Structures are given as structure tokens and as C-alpha cells.
Simulated scan of single mutants.
Amino acid sequence: MAKLYYYYASMNAGKSSTLLQAAFNYGERGMQVMLWTAALDDRPGFGAISSRIGLNSDAHRFDENSNIHDAVLEEHRETPLACVLIDEAQFLTKDQVWQCARLADEQNIPVLAYGLRTDFQGELFEGSATLLALADSLVELKAVCECGKKATMNLRIDETGKAVSAGKQTEIGGNERYIALCRKHFMQRLGR
């Protein structure tokens, strides 16, 4: 029986590289996968899943209006899929996570979702909250704080490196906008 998996972590934990390694492993065995990523990322390489260590691959793009279930079934009819891999899964809607669960439960297609658990204020994203509630398997990937402890939080920073404590939940950026920290250092940097 297929499962819905959620691999979650703070930034810089290797979520995208782990996803791309899984896709490579399936492909090496002659199995087809379908890759997805959030359409809202407008940085260079938009639409592509890319890791900080240089791995990348093109992917289907989802936004809040995408019907992932139907798109996967359409592709599956043409070429049987061994797995669906979703990067930036925190940006899935609640309904899209339920669609992924249906793919696993009704179509026997494993869905591996990779994403952040919380935003820069320590709040769950809609997609991550629903994945934490519904996934058959939860796997925490580890990142490292500047102190050497496990990083669990994502601190948003400004151009000068100072902590940002307010703003929109979603602001696309990499190392120039976010730092992965343990909770203690996250709170200290925010002055809490």
C-alpha cells in the first residue's frame, strides 16, 4: 500500500537534494516519477527544483488553483508513475494535501512531500499543518544551527543581517533572507 510521506525541516537541511536523490534512484531503476514545486518562486531557475549543492531538475508547478490529483492521474494514464515528489510542500493548500492522500490511498501512488514545518515567526504553514496531520510517515531532516545544535527555526533577516519579526508569511529567498537556527538562538535574535 502506498503512503503519503512528509519530510520536513528548517532551511538548509537538504530537503531538495534528498528529493532529487530519490528521483534519481527511481529513474536509475527505470521507474517514472512526477516532480512538483511551488510556482511562486520567482528566483533564477524558477520552476526548477534546485539544491544548494548544485543538483537540479525541472518540475511541474503548482499554485493554489492546481489540481494535483487530476494532473497526476492524467500523467499516470500515459506513463505509469512509481512516485510523486513535491518540493516546497509547505505551500500546498489543505485541499491539495488531501488530493495527495487520495493518490496514495486510491491510486496506490506514493507521494513524498518535502517542505518547511514553520515560517519565520514559528507558525505552521497551511500545507505543513495538513501534512503533519495526514501523512502516514513523518521524517524530520536535520539542519545545524550556528551553535552546532539542531536547527528547527527559520529566521528571516534584512539586508544587514538583522532579524525581521513582522511581514507576510511568504517571502521567497535563500541564504540572503533566512538563517536556520535552534529555538534558543532564534528567540535571542528576535529579542524574545
Rank of each mutant, 00 (worst) to 15 (best):
M1F: 05
A2G: 06
Y7V: 10
Y7D: 07
M11R: 05
K15A: 09
S16E: 11
S17A: 15
L19P: 09
L20F: 11
A23I: 08
F24Y: 15
F24G: 09
N25M: 14
R29F: 02
G30L: 01
V33E: 13
V33D: 13
V33P: 03
M34K: 12
M34R: 12
L35P: 04
T37A: 05
A39H: 06
A39P: 02
A39F: 04
A39R: 10
D41L: 04
G47K: 06
I49Y: 08
I53W: 03
I53G: 11
L55K: 12
D63C: 11
E64K: 14
E64Y: 01
D70T: 12
V72Y: 06
L73G: 08
E75R: 15
E75G: 03
P80T: 05
A82P: 00
V84G: 08
L85I: 08
L85K: 10
A89H: 06
Q90K: 05
T93P: 00
W98V: 15
Q99F: 00
C100N: 02
R102D: 03
L103I: 03
A104N: 06
V111G: 07
L116T: 01
T118F: 04
T118D: 04
F120G: 05
F120W: 01
Q121F: 01
G122H: 04
E126D: 13
E126L: 11
A129G: 03
A133I: 01
A133K: 14
A135Y: 02
D136K: 05
L138M: 11
L138G: 09
K142I: 10
K142F: 03
K142P: 00
A143G: 15
E146D: 10
C147Q: 07
G148Y: 08
T152V: 12
T152K: 08
T152H: 08
N154V: 00
D158P: 01
G161Q: 03
V164E: 12
A166T: 14
T170Y: 08
E171H: 12
G173D: 06
G174F: 07
Y178H: 05
I179D: 03
A180H: 03
L181A: 05
C182K: 12
C182M: 13
H185G: 13
H185S: 13
F186V: 13
M187P: 00
M187W: 00
R192K: 13
R192S: 04
